[in-house]
Design a protein around this nucleic acid. Structure first.
Lengths: 343, 343
DNA sequence: CTGTTAGCGCGTTCAA
DNA sequence: TTGAACGCGCTAACAG
């Protein structure tokens, strides 16, 4: 590996001059030397040593992508296509800009902050943060920061807050409206976990709003918190099927994965979808297409989330424009397929 | 951010002494000073600046995970659960050892090598490398290197070659044997892409071997190269279904995803699985479970692949034991489910 | 046995 | 256009 020093000896000029060429500071170097140095850099395949850059406090060119530890187990269990897609898209966007991506699963805010300072991380993308952690992170960070799919208390939305999310409320609202328009009245809501927060909470709120507008009262018995582990979840779903679904004619799920999983168990136990039961998902990912009937679901553009998050993050890093709060919620799209039917 | 120097000023001792405490060299520091320094480190939340480490060539604590660029598009299209799982598992293993993971999609061997030297990467994991690239990488690398699922020319398997793979041949062989034992004679083989290499090539070889042993002759018309893009692939599968599958009674697919995708199209077009056609997958991932009938497939332990690759890689990094060639192919497991039936 | 000083590695910046 | 100095962690050699 060639260093700036070595290049400088080759061309017989000082390291400083070489450095200036590397950084394109044409005004500081004569035309002739500029070309000579540029040729040498190319010929010897110069790559800057990132250690030197970090040390000189000159930008590590690292973007950290932080996954919250608490989510990790779920992701492993679900093999959620969302994470695959978003991480792939983030990596691409980061690389395109000449930066590098460090993927880190963090157990706490402190751990994340240490990660940032050890590497002089230039910017952070935060996936799936808990609301409290998100707030703490905003207060203590010294680096530009962009959240994806995070809902936090308004008081933390400082001037340079960035979040790219989805109109989750709208999604929950739209799909429920659609079911109501088909004549369904007894509709259940299924999410994973007992405690709802973030995107699921919003989707649920949209669901309840639609019911209310239809004059339907939401009953807490209509909420089903599903176990994220396969076996207990399946046992529960089987019981539900035997119980003739307690007279529900439609079930709204917070994800395609859960919807497909449940639909399969229901069908195994003699319940026909959509004849006996309408089922809806959320995400419009591969699962909603690789099942029969295909799922009626809410579509989102995952790639766009990544692109926007990185775009805004880099504006902060490059100090382009004034720091303006960004809380961009992308549009949802109702995708009607075979898993829902007029009642 | 606190540096060693600052800590040393705080406690009134030299930076070296502080450094010794950081590295736990108790023999070089008195009991009293050791405690005093440790307390100061904790109080000021000392985190070592990685720039200094990289610069001093003392190990960057970075493990690079390289995805080949050519595979990237496929992965994005498929949202392959394999990549999600393996990257998650790798990250966990790397983090457990106090290292950091950089994820990088590389377009060429040169790009990968530059990546390594710019960051003083301590070790590399290579996913989905083309055979030629793998060979070149082995010859030119200066860092420990572990491949996952890579088949390369024997001549490149140097003394410190590491590869963790799967008995793909055995998998292809077993599942075909199983179909033969059910009485199937006209069996097709479906893979993505026209040109087979790596794991698919081996699975195909196992398939042919089983056929041959059964006295069945493999006909090149029995191979179907499927488009990785959804629309042309579906159009093709639909035609195949209309053609009554050209009298095939069973189809072997190189992945669960392709198998489920095709099975759905077949079923949409009136072909019953397994009554009219037996279908098999490969991987035993979420797709083979989230379809009906569930797929008969070949199981593999993805997590174990990651753990072993990292284990071997770190043995090299830490220079533990003699450098011995490792080409460990994990066992496969035939998982019999509902998509196959006696003929 | 304990602690210190000196110097390496590389890119950037400031003063000359 | 350049030399010197800086940032930081680590190690070898040396001093107490």
């Amino acid at each position: 590996m060639v260093s700036i020093k070595e290049i400088s000896q080759i061309v017989g000029l000082s390291p400083t001059t070489v450095s200036n060429v590397v950084h394109g500071k044409k005004s500081k170097v004569s035309e002739i030397n500029y070309r000579k140095i540029q040729a040498a850099l190319k010929e010897h395949n110069y790559v800057s040593n990132m250690g030197g850059r970090i040390l000189g406090r000159h930008g590590s060119k690292i973007i950290g992508v932080i996954l919250s530890y608490s989510r990790r187990s779920e992701i492993n269990v679900f093999s959620d296509p969302f994470y695959d897609q978003i991480i792939g898209s983030l990596e691409e966007e980061i690389r395109k800009r000449g930066y590098f991506m460090m993927l880190y699963t963090s157990g706490s805010v402190n751990e994340s902050l240490q990660f940032v300072s050890a590497w002089n991380i230039e910017g952070l993308i935060i996936l799936g943060a808990l609301p409290d952690d998100a707030g703490k992170l905003i207060q203590e960070r010294k680096t530009p920061l962009a959240f994806i799919d995070t809902y936090i208390d308004k008081k933390f939305e400082t001037a340079d807050f960035i979040n790219i999310g989805l109109k989750d409320f709208e999604g929950g609202y739209q799909i429920t409206k659609y079911l109501l328009s088909l004549g369904h009245r007894k509709i259940g809501f299924c999410a994973d976990g007992v405690r709802l927060f973030g995107v699921d909470y919003e989707r649920f709120a949209g669901f309840k709003q639609a019911l209310q507008e239809a004059g339907s009262q939401f009953d807490s018995n209509d909420f089903f918190g599903l176990d994220y582990q396969l076996e207990p979840r399946h046992a529960f779903l089987k019981e539900l099927a035997k119980d003739q679904l307690k007279n529900f004619t439609a079930l709204v799920f917070t994800s395609d994965y859960l919807a497909v999983d449940a639909m399969n168990i229901f069908q195994d136990n003699g319940i026909r979808v959509p004849q006996d039961l309408s089922v809806t998902g959320f995400d419009h990912n591969v699962f909603s297409e690789q099942c029969r009937p295909k799922l009626t679901t809410i579509g989102q553009n995952v790639r766009q989330k990544a692109v926007l998050a990185i775009d805004h993050l880099f504006k902060r890093i490059k100090h382009e424009g004034k720091a303006v709060k960004v809380n961009q919620l992308l549009d949802v799209e109702l995708v009607i397929q075979g898993s829902t039917k007029k009642r």
